[in-house]
Nucleic acid binder design. Structure first.
Lengths: 401, 401
DNA sequence: CTTATTAAGTCAAATGTATTGACTTAATAG
DNA sequence: CTATTAAGTCAATACATTTGACTTAATAAG
C-alpha cells in the first residue's frame, strides 16, 4: 500500500513572501519611473504610506535606495524622492562564445563598470575553464577597486552562451559548444567563484539587457530578435523572461524553413554565420567585426546583397513573432556589428501585415535594440540583478530560497 | 511644474494576498493529485500543518473541499484525505461561432452538467445577442434544477470566440465575426446576466479545457494546437494561459507562409475552412460535421488527400511551436470531427527534428487532445473557474479585486 | 500677514495570517 | 503489551500590513 508517487504542488507563501514581493515592487517602480516619493510609491503600488515608509527605510538601510533633494510641488509638505543607489548591488556577467569569452561587472542600475575579454582556446572546457575563471577573478578585483565593498554586494554570476541546452545530437556547430554542453559548467563556476550562478542563452541575455537598460525598459511583453552567430528570440512575457520547460524557448534560429524543395534552419540563412559564409570569412578572425562594420557603413555590394536576402527572412520572423506572441513591441538587436544591424533594420521594412496593426498603438512595431559585442555579457550580468530584485511570481514562494 | 505623467508600477500585496494564494495552491494541489491529507498538503505546499488545517477548514466551510474516508497507511494516526467538491463552484461557458452558439455549465472539477446550442442568425449581434442571452438563461435555469444553489456558486461567464481581437481591418472572415468585434459584447453580456464575463479566443479556450480536464492537466508548459474553422495555439506558459499584450497571442493561423511565390496564411491551407473549400461544402450545413467524420472514418480519398497536405503544414507548425516555446508537450486538438483529427495525428508523424528531442523526456512530443464540437464551450467555462481558483501571480496583487 | 487648505510623512495600536512547540490521538511493529 | 511513528489540534507568538489620528510644511486666498 506504499504508493509513494510524488505529490506535485505549487509552493505556498507567508509574510516573508509578501514582504519580499513588496520590496521588489518598490525597486521595480523606482527603476521604471526614476526617483519617487513615498506617497507616490504608495499610490502606485496600492500599499499604504506606512508600509512604503517601512520598506523604504529598510531598503535605505540596505543601501539599495537613497533620498534625493526634496521637491516642492504645490501645497502640502514637500516630498522627498527616493531613487535606486547604483552601488547597492553588483553582478558579474560572463559570455562564453565560440572563440572568445567576455566578462563585465554591472551595478544595480545596469551600468557597466568593468569589462574584460579573452580568447578561448580550442578543445573546449578542459583548458577554457581556467581562462574563464581568471577572467572573472580579474573583473572582480577591478570592480572591488572601483567600488569599495562591492564583493559584499555581489548578487551573482550570470552566464550566457549559445543554446540550445540539453538537446540530443550535437547541434550544427561542431566548433566547440557541444563540448561545453557536456561539461558541468555551472557547478564548476559556482565552486570556482563562490557565487550563485545562472545560465541563459545569448538571445535571452540580450532581452534581459534590453529590459534593464534598453528598449524593453518597463515593458511587460516584448520579444528581442537577436542576430548573432546564430539567431534567437529573447522572450519577455508577463514582465519576466520566459525560458520554457528547459530553458530553450526562443531558439527560433533552429526553425526549419522549406524552400526550393529543401529545409534549412533560419539561422543558416540570416545569421552572422551565414554572412561569414557568404563572405568566405574566418569567424575566428578578431578583426572581422570591425571590418564588417566598415563594409556595411560603406555600402559594400556583397554585404548589401546579404542584407537584402537576410531582411526577407527577418521580416518574416518578425511577422511570426508578432503573430504568435502579440507583444507590445519587437526589438531587433544583436552581437552583429552595429552598422550591419542598422542596415538590416532599414532593409526589413515595410513590415508584413499582422495582428500588431491595431488602433491606438503607442510603440512602434519594431525598435532597434543594442548592437554591441558586449550586450550579451551585459545581459548575462543583468540576469542575477533581475533575479534578485525584479518582481516575479517565484519570488513570493517558499521554495525560492 | 505639473508633470502628472502616470507612474507605472506593479501592485503590492498583503496578508489577504498571501491567504488567497495559499487557498489557490491548496485547491490546485487537490486538482492535480486528487484527494490529499492535511499532512500531505503541508509537505507539498511547504506550509505548516497548522496553516493547512486552517485553510482546509475554511475551504470546507465554503463547500469547496470535503473529507473522504480515512486511510490507514502504516504506523501513526490514519489520515483523512480531502478532495474537491464538484458542487463547490460552477461556471457558464459560451462559444460564439460563425453560425452557431453553444453554452455549457461546468462544475469545479470541470464536468459538463448542461449543454445547449442554438443557431446564430446572420447580421451579427443585432439579433444574435438575444439568442445568446436566452441560451445562457436556459442553461442557468437547467443547472439550478440539477444542482440546487448553483446560482449562488456561479463564479462567472466565460466567452470564447474566434480571434483576433481589436485588430485593424476586418480579417479574412467576412461572414460575421467582424460585426461581433465592433460590438460591446462583454458589457452587454455582463449587464444581461449579472455575471463576471471574460473573453478568450477559441484556441485559448481549448487550452484552458485541456489544462483543467485534458492532456495538459497538471502541466505548466504546454501548447495546444487547435484545428477548427481557423487554426490557433493555446499557450500554457508557467502554469497560466498566456494571452500576450492584447489577448491575441497564439494566432498562429494568421502566420503567412511563402510558397510558390505567394504568401498564404497557415489557416488557409490546413484548417477546416480549407477542408470545406477543398470539398466545396457549405460551412453552414449543420450535418457537415457528422458527414466529414463519417468520410474520414471510411478513408474517403478526397479527405485523405486534404489530410495528407494539411499534415505537412501541421507537422511544421508543431516543429515551430517546439522550437519557439520549448513546451513539455504539444497537444493537437480541435473542433474538427474527431475522426478527422485522428487522421491528422496519424498523418503528422514522424515529427520533424527539434529541440524537443532531449534525453529523459517523459511525455510524448505530441499528444491528442479533445476533438469535440463542445470543447471550446467547455474551455470557455473553465476560464472563470481557473481565474477564480488557480494559483496565479495576478491573484496575490492588490488590484486583482 | 494671517488663516485655511492641502499633501507628505510619522506614531502607536490593531488586524490578519502564518509559525512554533507542546500535546493528543490512533494506528502498526516488534 | 509497549515503543514508535505519524496525523492532527491547541494556545501562544511572530511578522507584516493596515488604520486613524497626528505632525510637519508648503501654497492659496482673503
Amino acid at each position: 500500500m506504499n504508493d509513494s508517487r510524488p505529490i506535485r504542488a505549487k509552493s505556498g507563501t507567508n509574510h516573508e513572501g509578501t514582504s519580499a514581493h513588496n520590496r521588489r515592487v518598490m525597486i521595480d517602480a523606482l527603476r521604471i519611473n526614476g526617483a519617487l516619493s513615498r506617497a507616490d510609491l504608495a499610490r502606485a503600488t496600492r500599499l499604504t504610506k506606512q508600509t512604503v515608509s517601512n520598506i523604504i527605510e529598510e531598503l535605505e538601510r540596505d543601501g539599495l535606495v537613497g533620498s534625493r533633494d526634496a521637491v516642492k510641488k504645490g501645497r502640502g509638505q514637500p516630498s522627498t524622492p527616493y531613487g535606486l543607489v547604483p552601488q547597492g548591488a553588483f553582478a558579474i556577467g560572463l559570455q562564453i562564445d565560440r572563440h572568445v569569452t567576455r566578462a563585465v561587472a554591472v551595478d544595480l542600475v545596469g551600468s557597466v563598470l568593468v569589462r574584460a575579454e579573452a580568447g578561448l582556446p580550442p578543445r573546449g572546457p578542459s583548458r577554457g575553464t581556467k581562462v574563464i575563471l581568471d577572467l572573472v577573478a580579474g573583473v572582480r578585483s577591478k570592480l572591488e577597486i572601483i567600488a569599495r565593498q562591492s564583493e559584499r554586494r555581489l548578487v551573482g554570476l550570470g552566464v550566457a552562451m549559445p543554446g540550445p541546452f540539453g538537446v540530443d545530437g550535437s547541434g550544427d556547430d561542431p566548433w566547440m559548444m557541444a563540448a561545453w554542453q557536456q561539461f558541468p559548467l555551472l557547478e564548476t563556476l559556482a565552486a570556482g567563484t563562490g557565487l550563485d550562478v545562472g545560465l541563459q542563452n545569448d538571445a535571452a541575455a540580450a532581452a534581459t539587457a534590453e529590459r534593464m537598460v534598453g528598449a524593453a525598459h518597463g515593458l511587460d511583453h516584448a520579444v528581442c530578435l537577436f542576430v548573432g552567430y546564430g539567431i534567437g528570440a529573447g522572450l519577455i512575457l508577463n514582465g519576466e523572461l520566459y525560458g520554457g520547460a528547459n530553458g530553450n524557448a526562443g531558439e527560433i534560429g533552429m526553425a526549419l524553413l522549406f524552400a526550393d524543395g529543401k529545409s534549412t534552419p533560419l539561422e543558416h540563412r540570416a545569421s552572422l554565420a551565414s554572412l561569414y559564409e557568404h563572405l568566405s570569412a574566418d569567424p575566428a578572425d578578431p578583426a572581422l567585426h570591425a571590418r564588417i562594420n566598415d563594409l556595411a557603413l560603406r555600402g559594400d555590394p556583397s554585404i548589401q546583397a546579404w542584407v537584402k536576402a537576410a531582411a526577407v527572412d527577418l521580416r518574416w520572423s518578425i511577422h511570426l513573432i508578432e503573430t504568435i506572441f502579440d507583444p507590445q513591441t519587437v526589438i531587433l538587436c544583436g552581437s552583429a556589428p552595429e552598422a550591419l544591424v542598422n542596415s538590416l533594420i532599414a532593409a526589413v521594412g515595410p513590415l508584413l501585415p499582422s495582428i500588431a496593426e491595431r488602433r491606438g498603438r503607442t510603440l512602434p512595431r519594431l525598435q532597434p535594440g543594442m548592437a554591441d559585442p558586449w550586450s550579451v555579457a551585459l545581459g548575462a550580468a543583468a540576469g542575477p540583478i533581475s533575479r534578485a530584485f525584479d518582481p516575479r511570481f517565484a519570488a513570493i514562494l517558499k521554495d525560492s530560497l
